[in-house]
Simulated scan of single mutants.
Amino acid sequence: MRRFEGSELLIATHNLGKLEEFQAILGPLGITCRSNVDFDLPEPEETEQTFEGNARIKAVAAVTATGLPALADDSGIIIDGLDGAPGVHTADWAETPTGRDFKIAMTRAWQELEARKAPTPRTARFHATLLLRWPDGHEEVFVGEAEGQVVWPMRGATGHGYDPIFMPAGHDRTFGEMALEEKNHLSHRAKALAAMAACFGKA
């Protein structure tokens, strides 16, 4: 596994919630995280049907545009009873003519579970694939998952995406009700970063 020796890492995202999570985890390691927003980069079209494939699209676009090493995340919620959906289409479920609205996406997910009379508890998992790519084309890939269940109604105002309806296993609060620091110990992204720790000299 290649070690990351730099002090600045481009997080290939326009999602400032994700950027905040990465900065909270990598900041203590002496790494400054920047985002696509800092460089006014366009958002590449995610055309792959796997998390890894879409992460690679984002990482390659960011590295090519800036010459900086980039960490791309492709993540989503997989809800049992919805045939693996939303999965890689997690963000697509939130698309509207005026931008992404995850309240609409969460409502759709619950309504589809209700329509299918899905049994309870309605189990689900958040999945994250991290792809760290260097300007010379080398890359490392890491995966993390957080098991839990979908609950209704939405609960909590922190986090982002589907956090207000996802209650991690062994807990009685949703990600949306947890402080960022607490969520960062449990999240799929944190687990993928833990798997990647050796890249940052923290194995």
Rank of each mutant, 00 (worst) to 15 (best):
D136A: 10
G137Y: 13
G137M: 12
G137F: 11
G137T: 13
G137E: 15
H138N: 12
H138V: 15
H138Q: 15
H138L: 13
E139W: 03
E139N: 06
E139D: 13
E139H: 11
E140A: 12
E140G: 09
E140M: 13
V141H: 02
V141C: 14
V141G: 02
F142W: 10
V143A: 10
V143W: 11
V143N: 14
V143Q: 14
G144W: 04
G144I: 05
E145G: 00
E145M: 13
E145T: 15
A146N: 09
A146M: 14
E147I: 06
G148F: 08
G148L: 01
G148D: 03
G148I: 04
Q149M: 15
Q149A: 15
Q149W: 10
Q149H: 14
Q149S: 14
Q149D: 11
V150Y: 06
V150F: 06
V150M: 13
V150C: 10
V151G: 03
V151K: 00
V151H: 04
V151R: 04
W152P: 06
W152F: 12
W152N: 07
P153D: 01
P153L: 06
M154I: 03
M154H: 01
M154D: 06
M154G: 07
M154N: 10
R155D: 05
R155Y: 04
G156P: 00
G156W: 05
A157I: 13
A157W: 08
A157N: 12
T158W: 12
G159E: 03
G159W: 05
G159S: 08
H160R: 11
H160P: 01
G161Y: 00
Y162E: 02
Y162Q: 04
Y162S: 07
Y162L: 04
Y162P: 03
D163R: 05
D163N: 07
D163E: 11
D163Q: 05
D163L: 08
P164H: 05
P164W: 02
I165R: 02
F166K: 00
F166P: 01
F166E: 02
M167F: 03
M167G: 01
M167A: 12
P168L: 04
P168T: 03
P168E: 04
P168S: 02
